[in-house]
Write a protein that binds this DNA or RNA. Structure first.
Length: 979
RNA sequence: GGGCGAUUAACUCAGCGGGAGAGUGCUACCUUCACGCGGUAGAAGUCGCAGGUUCGAAUCCUGCAUCGCCCACCA
């Protein structure tokens, strides 16, 4: 320690050192291990009787790097977990990572590309081996980053979605759902990504809100019998014409009645196709004739099925045209083929018209490539029965009017409005495509007979397959990543083994905290799996955190280069490091972003540490759905606050070091009882806010308590007392230490590192001086200490009186400012309590010494109502200035030090304000209907208020008498009556 | 097209039926022995617009405007 004495705190807070020390102590104490080990035996010295509180982490991708959304979500989880652990629960936070099928395959493929290796040439097994290698090297980075953030996970239980156990869980569910007819295989038109060459679920496809620019081509299809007559179809995809099997018109469309049942000649092919009717056709779009391409459009597929039309697939997996098309077009990419087809149609005189047209173009979430619709054999989860069960668990019932909310349900969303969104999605749910034509993932546990086509499904290869391995082949496809994530709360705790100690004790989990972006992908599906496989929802509460936006309100994303890197916030970054994400993303507003960074952080950004990062996020985490962040906020909010806490703790520790060991402590003074009551109140309110998931309130309660109660008032009052008698100094130091200990505990869930460090200094310092009162902290480690009680006694009367005391001190300061007196001029002051607050005088007498110091008073006389005004040794001169307050009146003599004009202007301003307030109250009370209809308590309150204001007004008027020369009729000349 | 959310001081946001609030920024002053990453005092708002309900509306209802998010998609 640089400051010599053993208990002294470094002058400057060094987050890096404090964070390293924190982890060292927590690891040594195994502070974050649950009370019961995974094998079912109690933790050494643990408390297996404590009620479990379980959170499973939303598993980040192994390819992931910590971004601000992770930082926010994991801070919130850590706040909850640390709070519950301190509150006396057996807290378990299960960490882990997700194998992230397509995403990881893409990353590793690119990694291999950069080494000149073609992944397809490697073959499936070798490629998978390379992915595992990659995962060994880089897959744990994100968990290390979570540690930097301070996450109190039980890292013994770290899981990965491709672990043996979790893989068995996947196969078990697949088999069970297949047996229950909730998984089926079918030939369907699915979303297809031509880049990754795989099917995608509907949820993995994104469409720009206003569509994308394209064209609408009108093409003539000549009648087969009478080539002079033509039907004109309108299409945005002329290249799929080769797959057309019919032209459809609306059954009631009179224009085309004569064509129905005839055949048209499909251009460029010479193939004849029928003209059919289907009511799905919109008569008002284009010409009212729809070309039917069942293999390349989901709607056309449905129409084709209704009419028994055989689909014609005209594309390869990479969206080049296949051999089903005329020779000149074979092998062409779909967009090249489009140009060629249009040119050929034009040359043949069949192109009627081309017009610009915006169309809803689906793109693959991962690759960004426009989706192709592809007819293929895929596996699906039949979601309707699962969604129905989930809806019922949430208290929804299906009636004549459709689904309606009927009862509370078992699942609580925070904020509650997300239940509507969730239910709406469940009501409109469509089957889930779960097969993916990639290599990295859980291979589908189904075997196809090479000759008969029979399909067998098993957790392990079925007996028939084992008997004749050569006659069967395992399905080539793997499962959607979410098919393992949806089991996460169960599988991390040991499912499908029915009776693991973890599953029995820690499942269902308590709270799930997540981003609203994966409400459907993940949360809803976890509910399905939980209900279906265990009969229980996997958690009771779902907290949806706000979306992190940049300072201008845009969603933070890697591709926009506008993200704020949490590690830069914690550890700092040079200017070049701050610019790097922008340069990598190369967004359209790159120059602007770079200039902004250069202007705001020319010297780079000084790291503020994990605590400041966390405090800032918590402080800004309100119930809205957005959180606007700029790098500067972390200085403004988190770092300032942590520094303030550090310095206040320094003061307390210095005070404690300074007390004489032998001195007895005096009885608690009013200010001691006040701050003790305040910290008890802060504990209650903080607990309430945590129970409501109102994190912004938690941040603001703690901020206000530390800054405005503890630092601004208690510490300031304490300074004078530390210089007084040893008994008084000892009492003050004890109170400082006790209140600080509670404060650190209250703050620990939010700012774990700095509070752990400070508590580590405070505890021995208090021990050395014997300053703990009845109770000594049970734990030397704050992480395992008790959260301050919800029922500690409070003294509301004292708190109210103390507010008046604060107004008195502020009033004196304002009086000096108003009247141009130097701020350090000692004033004699006399105070009389008003009848409204009997007891205020006693409080003031009780802490007159410290009050005199903070208000810089020459003397402080507390007078009874009847006594004439007098000012200690000073003469009670005729002219006085006064502070008029509902709780008291305070006066100081003018004594020629003060400008009478300023004093009278002051009275004039105050009168004006009070009269306007009184007028408002009077107006209300004069309204007969208000008096009749408003709640009696409200009316009474207004009466009291008016009375207090009138009292103040008359006192001010009496005071103004002194300046009679400056007033007419008792009112200041410059003021206006009322308001 | 449907749904959800936001609109309050220059900025970021609380407040959600009875006196317009906080932090930042701004102005003036203060080297007070924890902290200038500080302290004290101050200026600053027709609470998006228009109706309605109510004794009373920033707060509840309706409509409109602007911004954001989600879902759907007529080829």
């Amino acid at each position: 320690m640089p400051n010599g004495s053993p208990g002294a705190l470094a002058t400057r807070f060094d987050p890096g050192a404090v964070e390293a020390e924190g982890w060292k102590r927590w690891n040594e104490a195994r502070a974050f291990e649950s009370e019961v080990d995974p094998d079912g035996s109690p933790r050494r010295g643990g408390h297996p009787e404590r009620e479990p509180f379980t959170v499973v982490i939303p598993p980040p991708n192994i390819t992931g790097r910590l971004h601000m959304g992770h930082a926010l979500n994991n801070t919130i989880q850590d706040v909850l977990v640390r709070y519950r652990r301190m509150e006396g629960r057996d807290a378990l936070w299960v960490p882990g990572t997700d194998h992230a099928g397509i995403s990881t395959q893409t990353v590793v493929r690119k990694h291999l590309d950069s080494q000149g290796v073609d992944y397809r040439a490697l073959g499936r097994d070798e490629f998978i081996a390379r992915v595992w290698e990659w995962r060994e090297r880089y897959g744990g980075v994100i968990l290390e980053q979570l540690r930097k953030l301070g996450c109190s996970c039980d890292f013994r239980r770290t899981r990965f979605t491709m672990d043996d156990g979790l893989s068995r869980a996947v196969r078990t569910v697949f088999k069970a759902l297949y047996d229950r007819d909730l998984i089926y295989r079918g030939k369907r038109v699915v979303n297809w990504c031509p880049v990754d060459r795989t099917a995608l679920s509907d949820d993995e496809v994104e469409t720009a809100p206003d569509g994308e620019p394209g064209h609408l081509w009108r093409i003539d299809y000549p009648l087969f019998d009478e080539p002079g007559k033509r039907l004109t179809v309108a299409t945005t995809r002329p290249e799929t014409l080769f797959g057309d099997v019919a032209v459809a018109v609306h059954p009631e469309d009179h224009r085309y009645r004569a064509f129905v049942g005839k055949q048209v000649l499909l251009p460029l092919t010479g193939r004849a196709i029928p003209v059919i009717t289907d009511s799905a056709v919109d008569r008002n779009f284009g010409s009212g004739c729809l070309k039917i391409t069942p293999a390349h459009d989901p709607h056309d597929f449905e129409i084709g099925q209704r009419h028994g039309l055989e689909p014609r697939n005209v594309m390869h997996e990479d969206a080049t045209l296949n051999d089903a098309v005329p020779e000149p077009f074979r092998g062409l990419d779909r967009y090249r083929a489009r140009e060629e087809a249009v040119a050929a149609l034009d040359a043949a005189g069949l192109l009627q018209k081309v017009e610009p047209h915006r169309l809803p173009l689906g793109r693959a979430q991962r690759s960004g490539a426009p989706i192709e619709y592809r007819l293929s054999d895929q596996w699906f989860v039949r979601t309707r029965p699962l969604a129905d069960r989930a809806l019922r668990r949430s208290g929804w019932e299906l009636g004549d009017e459709g689904w309606e909310k009927k009862s509370a349900g078992e699942l609580r969303f925070h904020p509650a409005r997300f239940e509507q969104l969730y239910a709406r999605w469940l009501i409109g749910i469509r089957d889930w495509t779960i097969s993916r034509q990639i290599w990295w993932g859980h291979r589908i546990p189904a075997w196809h007979h090479r000759e008969t086509g029979e399909v067998l499904v098993g957790v392990n290869p079925p007996a028939a397959v084992q008997r004749e391995p050569d006659a069967w082949r395992q399905d080539e496809d793997v499962l959607d990543t979410w098919f393992s994530s949806w089991l996460w709360p169960m599988s991390t705790l040991g499912w499908p083994d029915e009776h693991t100690p973890d599953l029995g004790r820690y499942y269902p989990t308590s709270v799930l905290s997540t981003d609203k972006g994966i409400l459907f992908f993940w949360v809803a599906r976890m509910n399905f799996a939980g209900i279906e496989m265990t009969g229980r929802l996997p958690y009771r509460d779902v907290y949806i955190h706000p979306t992190v936006l940049d300072e201008r309100g845009a969603v933070m994303s890697k591709s926009k280069g506008n993200g704020v890197d949490p590690l830069a916030v914690i550890e700092g970054a040079t200017l070049d490091e701050l610019k790097r994400p922008v340069l990598e993303a190369r967004p359209s507003n790159m120059g602007d972003l770079l200039r902004r960074v250069e202007r705001n952080f020319p010297q780079g950004f000084e790291g503020v540490g994990a605590d400041a990062l966390r405090f800032t996020l918590v402080r800004l985490c309100s119930e809205g759905q957005e959180m606007r962040l700029a790098l500067s906020k972390f200085h403004e909010i988190g770092r300032r606050f942590v520094t303030k806490l550090w310095n206040a703790s320094r003061f307390a520790l210095l005070a404690i070091e300074g007390v004489e060991e032998s001195a007895p402590a005096s009885a608690p003074q009013p200010e001691d009882r006040w701050i003790t009551s305040r910290v008890a109140g802060c504990a209650q309110e903080t607990r309430n806010a945590l129970e409501r998931f109102d994190f912004a309130a938690v941040g603001s309660l703690l901020y206000r308590f530390v800054w405005n109660d503890f630092c601004d008032w208690y510490v300031e009052l304490a300074k004078a007392r530390m210089r007084s008698a040893p008994e008084s100094a000892r009492r003050t130091a004890a109170t400082l230490g006790l209140v600080l200990a509670d404060t650190l505990a209250l703050l620990h869930p939010v700012t774990p590192f700095v509070t752990e460090h400070l508590f580590g200094q405070l505890l021995p310092a208090m021990d050395r001086k014997g300053l703990w009162s009845e109770t000594h902290p049970e734990s030397a480690l704050l992480a395992r200490a008790r959260f301050p009680a919800a029922d500690a006694p409070r003294d509301p009367e004292l708190e109210t009186d103390f507010d008046a005391l604060r107004r008195l001190v502020s009033g004196v300061r304002k009086l000096r400012a108003d009247t141009g007196l130097p701020p350090d001029l000692p004033l004699p002051l006399a105070v009389k309590e008003s009848p409204a607050r009997p007891g205020f005088g006693a409080l003031l007498t009780g802490c007159s010494g410290p009050v005199r110091a903070v208000a810089r008073l020459e003397s402080l006389s507390v007078l009874s109502k009847e006594r004439p005004w007098s000012f200690g040794a000073a003469s009670a001169g005729s002219n006085q200035v006064s502070i008029v307050d509902p709780a008291f009146e305070a006066r100081t003599p003018l004594d020629g030090k003060l400008d009478p004009a300023a004093a009278s202007a002051r009275i004039s301003t105050q009168l004006k304000r009070i009269r306007s307030q009184a007028a408002a109250a009077r107006k209300r009370l004069d309204n007969r209907r208000f008096v009749e209809r408003a709640e009696p308590a409200v009316v009474a309150e207004q009466r009291n208020r008016l009375e207090a204001l009138s009292d103040q007004e008359s006192r001010l008027l009496a005071l103004a008498e002194q300046f009679t020369g400056r007033f007419e009729n008792g009112a200041p000349r410059s003021s206006h009556e009322g308001a």
